[in-house]
Nucleic acid binder design. Sequence first.
DNA 1: GCGATCCG
DNA 2: CGGATCGC
Length: 68
Amino acid sequence: MTQKQLPPVKVKDPTTGKEVKLSPIKVWELSPKTRKGKGKGVKIGLFKSPDTGKYFRAKVPDDYPISK
DNA sequence: GCGATCCG
DNA sequence: CGGATCGC
């Protein structure tokens, strides 16, 4: 059992205004427009509010794995 | 404003 | 096709 299950991300549901731990449905990274050597982009995760079922995006930690 | 990505 | 996400 070497598999590490990813911890849920603490995000604020804009629909409820509550901070909830959710696992991102999809995660990707916005590359910096000028990808010149440095400048990390921002990792974005797609979530859905458990209460309203609405979708929203939020930043995820830089160490989060990317879903393709 | 751009960069990726998805849902209305 | 737009809006929304975050950093520069």
